[in-house]
Amino acid sequence: MKTIILIPARYASTRYPGKPLVMLTGKDGVPKSLIQRSWEAAKGVVDVASVYVCTDDDRIKDAAEAFGASVIMTAESCANGTERCADALQHLSESADLYINLQGDAPLTPAWFVEDLIRAMKADPSVQMATPVLRCDAQTHANFVEDRLNGRVGGTTAVFDKNLNALYFSKEVIPYTGKTFGEGDTIPVFHHVGVYGYREQALKSYSSWPVGPLETWEGLEQLRFLENGMPIRCVEVDGRGRVFWELNNPVDVARIEQVI
């Protein structure tokens, strides 16, 4: 079963303009752009046929090609990463059974998150769309709560049913607990990992649907699937002690640099 990873990246981010080209310096002292670190994360995934950066911006295109990435230029009208991945299908010179959207702001995504997602979709051909979820540790939960208390939109949380099909995704911390957790506590809050797996028909269907009210209010692209009755399979992944966090706001640069 052939898999292609698509990395959607746009320069004109509402919350953080120019985000893909923000430089992140790891413990080795080497500065690399956010998009390069996300591409390197994608290249670390096993059994993937190709990896493409998908953008509408020449600055991102030039930077990506400079570090060796293959680039697909997509329409400026793409409002989110899923729309950009769907648009990229029209320009791909190859086809696949699975398309993985590894968003360009998630350089801390471990390869096994994506590999577990691919494995789950291969195991159940009925699943048209899937996404990983990670049970929060105490520090991640505290980061979520801190962001909301300070009026920042940080990561996304997910709730799902007993069959692991998503019930809802939110930028609020759900489910509400009203508790402060410590290390070792089992926390009932799941961090939605910004990776999606689609079969081709799911991507094509997405492009044909109008934007719904939930997607508009939350600003979460995946809610369009739920609003149109397409189930999203949540795949629980194990952090294995690794910290996972996306770059959503300038304050996240320091959080990510501490890890890399």
Rank of each mutant, 00 (worst) to 15 (best):
G219P: 08
Q36Y: 07
Y11Q: 09
W39V: 06
N165P: 00
A111G: 09
P175C: 08
A63C: 08
W245A: 12
Y168A: 15
Q222C: 13
S50Y: 02
K162T: 09
L203K: 06
S33E: 04
T177R: 06
I100P: 06
P107L: 14
W245M: 08
V251N: 02
R199P: 04
I174G: 09
G29C: 08
S126I: 02
K162L: 10
Q258K: 15
R240T: 04
P125I: 02
R240V: 03
V173M: 02
V114H: 00
K19H: 05
V253N: 13
P8K: 07
N163F: 14
M121H: 11
D57A: 12
A96C: 05
K27T: 07
N228K: 04
M129Y: 07
D116K: 14
L102N: 05
G212E: 13
R240W: 05
A79D: 11
A120E: 14
L220F: 13
V193N: 13
D105Q: 00
G26D: 12
C78A: 15
R224D: 09
M230E: 10
V243D: 15
R242M: 09
R233V: 01
I256K: 06
L34Q: 14
G197C: 04
S207G: 09
L167W: 13
V153L: 14
V253P: 09
S70G: 01
R148V: 12
K27W: 06
T109I: 12
Y196T: 05
V237F: 03
R135G: 05
R240C: 12
G151A: 03
E115K: 04
R84P: 00
L220E: 03
T25V: 12
P125F: 00
R233N: 02
P107H: 14
D124R: 04
L102Q: 09
E218I: 02
V114W: 04
G184C: 09
F244K: 02
H141T: 02
I4W: 01
E183Q: 06
R119T: 13
P110H: 11
A111R: 12
E215F: 00
S93G: 15
S93H: 12
E94C: 11
T157W: 11
L92F: 12
Y206F: 14
Q36T: 05
V251K: 06
E236A: 08
Y198H: 15
Y52F: 15
P31C: 12
R255I: 10
C234E: 03
I187R: 03
I118H: 07
I174N: 07
F169G: 01
K27C: 05
V173S: 04
P17E: 08
E40D: 14
Y196W: 10
N249Y: 00
T156K: 13
A254M: 09
M23V: 00
E76C: 02
Y52W: 08
R10D: 03
V235M: 06
V53M: 01
L34G: 09
G178N: 03
E200T: 03
A158E: 05
R119I: 00
G154N: 08
K19C: 05
V145N: 01
Q90C: 04
S126E: 14
P17K: 07
Q139E: 15
M129F: 11
G229R: 10
